[in-house]
């Protein structure tokens, strides 16, 4: 079974980067088997078509806007994940939903898809998360772990994991 865990978001804009920070923590705290690929997707769009294609399961960590209060943790699965392609004026507007639509056309969409997300509090230009979001990060990482374990993947805690680059770079 091929599984991809991908963190999305812009680490230069506070909570916008919480998805990237979540996968960074996941790798610091857990040993994952080789069948699981962890990707720091940043704000990329079309560059993610390759890593996302032809997988059994894609788990996405991202900031999510659902109308709920900031710092709310969210799990979206399969049909709840929007797949549409909107009118664009810039390639930056290619979001996850657009990528999934393109993969569907190609017949290469992941068999299952889950988003583990959190509603952001601030998009200020700053490296680092707000206090509220920070306080929920442990819980978010555990949701990612639960997701992997529910697929029958062995996830082992580690003590020797190094702090990630973006945690190190916090201002």
């Amino acid at each position: 079974m091929s599984v991809v865990v991908i963190g999305l978001g812009n680490v230069l804009l506070s909570d916008e980067g919480l998805g990237v920070r979540a996968v960074e923590l996941l790798e610091q705290r857990y040993i994952l088997p080789e069948s699981v690929e962890v990707i720091d997707g940043g704000t990329s769009a079309m560059d993610l078509l390759n890593p996302l294609s032809n997988n059994d399961h894609v788990i996405i960590a991202d900031s999510v806007k659902t109308g709920a209060a900031p710092c709310t943790l969210v799990r979206l699965a399969d049909e709840q994940v929007p797949k549409f392609f909107q009118t664009k004026i810039s390639p930056h507007q290619i979001g996850l939903s657009d990528l999934l639509a393109l993969l569907t056309v190609q017949g290469q969409a992941p068999k299952k898809i889950t988003i583990i997300g959190m509603v952001p509090e601030s998009f200020a230009t700053h490296i680092g998360l707000t206090e509220g979001v920070s306080a929920k990060m442990d819980e978010m990482v555990e949701l990612l772990v639960d997701e992997l374990r529910s697929l029958g993947i062995a996830v082992k805690p580690r003590q020797d994991g190094a702090q990630g680059f973006w945690a190190e770079a916090e201002q």
């Binding site: 978001g9 916008e16 940043g42 991202d62 999510v64 929007p82 810039s90 930056h92 998009f123």
Partner: peptide
């Protein structure tokens, strides 16, 4: 090939008015 703002990437479950 406009490419500005260079930044936001978030999942939005609410559709938005464009024009």
């Amino acid at each position: 090939d406009p490419c500005i703002a260079c930044a936001i990437h978030l999942v939005d479950t609410e559709q938005q008015e464009i024009i």
